[in-house]
Design a protein around this nucleic acid. Sequence first.
DNA 1: TCTTAATTAGACCACTTAGTCGGTCTTATT
DNA 2: AATAAGACCGACTAAGTGGTCTAATTAAGA
Lengths: 204, 204
Amino acid sequence: MEQTLKRLATMQRLQVAGLELFYQNGYHNTSVDDILKKLDLSKGAFYYHFKSKEEFFISIIQNLIVQKVYSALVQPIEGKEDPFSIIENSLDASLETAEHNFFDNGFVLSNFIAETQGKDPEVNTYLNDILKIWEVALITSLQKGKSDGYVARHVDSDGVAAYVISAYIGIRLQMASGNAKNLRYKFVQQLRAYFRSLVPQAIH
Amino acid sequence: MEQTLKRLATMQRLQVAGLELFYQNGYHNTSVDDILKKLDLSKGAFYYHFKSKEEFFISIIQNLIVQKVYSALVQPIEGKEDPFSIIENSLDASLETAEHNFFDNGFVLSNFIAETQGKDPEVNTYLNDILKIWEVALITSLQKGKSDGYVARHVDSDGVAAYVISAYIGIRLQMASGNAKNLRYKFVQQLRAYFRSLVPQAIH
DNA sequence: TCTTAATTAGACCACTTAGTCGGTCTTATT
DNA sequence: AATAAGACCGACTAAGTGGTCTAATTAAGA
């Protein structure tokens, strides 16, 4: 019992430090030794808990990254109100934390997807699965919004979801290169203009 | 004279092969030897023409990538017609070539920007400069569109440009993970809806 | 043809990488 | 206290890594 706790604690420490370094320097550009040095641990410890660097990365994806994305982008839009406003709010909130994070390096998910494209197909799959979760949540929210009269009937929910995801990925990449505050403001403005075109028109 | 030609030819061969491999496997995940092996050249040849791997990469960026982006995304929107339709056309055309490229790994520029974020600040700067060129072209086009009556006066050209770039970056990343054709169609649909909200309203 | 310079070959160096393995310490069980 | 299992250490290996250097080859000009 105490044992398992210690085991999990060490694994968690490794994963947290690993994610931080992978996110900062990229997966291929971060060595296992880098992570170990940061925690004053040894090779033995690492390979006792994980059987390879890749498996380690996958465990990070499935434990930490899923969580991050879910709590920041999926859960907030599971309400019953106007999809457009709750989506806008969740994106804006997420951009705000990015803006105030001095070491922001872009959207974790899209960075890793870009890096593992072609190479590392297995890892890439796990990452895309997370994107898919977000996509489904968006689509669900939009569909419900139709029944509730918030979203125009003719709207293609799939298309809107893909477009929203695209825009978010792109703006995060640009924000990481400076001028985050300004970009965030512009983004929300345009997102709003876009959403306005998808609202049911008042009869006149 | 013959010399210079040969020199340039070899450099070009190295750059083309380098870009291909960097694009496929990432910059950090491609060794100089990989490139050399592909061309049956030796270390000596490489370091005779380029003084380091990084300088080599920068030369690729400034020769090949600039060209690619310019001819695909900047030049096509330098017309005098409706900005929205020429922008839409240039993006669609660019997505079409991506769709039909079986080895599409996403948008070259954004992939490299993501990879060199934090690490490799110099390289990152050169890449962002190219994005900037595109941004300026978009803004110019939109501004001209206002005088010509294609774009509503109240529109924030900077914001629209940033938003268009974002969306394009994001959709390219998603397209690389399969289902390209469908995504392209959805993207253009939504882009059109968005643009409609930025057109001057007919007086009624 | 002889000389000189441009270009390429490839052995070599110092260093880093992911992963292994025999051993050690620590904790739980009897 | 004795035993066993869990957790960790750190030297080591084999395969790369970017980059250097000398020698060989090729082409140009006299």
